[in-house]
Simulated assay, not measured.
Amino acid sequence: MRLRRCGAAAVLVELDSLTEVAAARAALADLPGVVELVPAARTVLVSFASGAGRLKQVSELLDNADLSNAPVSDSRTVVLPSVYDGPDLELVAETAGLSVEDTVALHTSAEYTVAFCGFSPGFAYLTGLPEPLRQPRLDTPRTRVPVGAIGVAGEFTGVYPRSSPGGWRLLGRLADDTDALFDPARTPASLLAPGDRVRFEAR
């Protein structure tokens, strides 16, 4: 673990794994004066209302925390109705050594956790992807991935909240009646937040 000052009122905690990130985020959640916690793949940014003595506070708290286990979350579960007709579904199935039907069943049988958000507003990196579906990105990224596309890349699965370039292997898409992943007119604007549990439900 490594701590870095970020401006006058924030501390960046550098960690070694997603498990440590989740554990550190949980430990820091109740620290007095915290305004925002921003997890990423290997860091947590802790922003405070004021910065005096905060580096020491963060250091002391995390030195006494168990960062080896991700905490059990009491966050909500979000179900995403999904249609599995993606252009890379057969590629993912072949690479995994599974039938298309078993690939869909495997993806929908898992419960995922939002590890962090990034890339674009509303994009959530979901952990919990079954091992056979952990596959590399495409050799050549697409210049346009449609909104709602469901993809896998490495240890993550996720859904594109808006049309954008992207290199993830696409399994399908969200059903048309699914709530928007990001809506600036909604509070909160993002449907998914770190710590949320997510399940995909085949239509």
Rank of each mutant, 00 (worst) to 15 (best):
E101W: 06
T95R: 05
P71K: 00
S47F: 09
S50Q: 07
R25V: 11
A27L: 11
P32D: 08
A29V: 09
A24D: 14
A29D: 13
Q57Y: 00
V35L: 07
A96V: 05
F48D: 01
T103R: 05
S59C: 13
G86F: 09
A70E: 01
L37G: 13
V92G: 09
N64C: 12
A105V: 13
G53W: 03
E111A: 00
A24E: 14
S99V: 06
T108Q: 14
V104L: 14
L106F: 10
A29F: 06
A65V: 00
D74K: 07
V92H: 01
E60S: 13
E90T: 06
P71S: 00
E101T: 01
P87N: 07
R42H: 10
P81Q: 02
T103S: 08
V34Y: 10
H107L: 06
A96L: 06
A70T: 08
G97D: 09
R42K: 08
L80R: 08
S73M: 04
D63N: 11
V44C: 13
A27G: 09
E60Q: 12
L91C: 00
V83D: 12
R76I: 04
E90D: 07
V46P: 13
H107Y: 04
V79Q: 08
S68T: 00
V44I: 15
A29P: 00
D74Q: 12
S73K: 03
L62S: 11
L62I: 13
V79R: 05
E36T: 05
A93C: 05
D63F: 07
T95L: 03
V72T: 01
L98A: 09
D74M: 01
L55K: 15
S59F: 12
G86R: 05
S68I: 05
L80Y: 11
A41R: 06
D102Y: 07
L31G: 11
V46W: 14
A29Y: 03
L61Y: 15
T77W: 04
V44R: 11
T108Y: 15
G33A: 03
A110R: 08
D30R: 06
L31S: 04
R25Y: 10
S82D: 12
A27W: 00
L31Y: 13
T108K: 15
G53T: 04
A26M: 06
S75K: 15
V35S: 08
L31Q: 13
V38K: 14
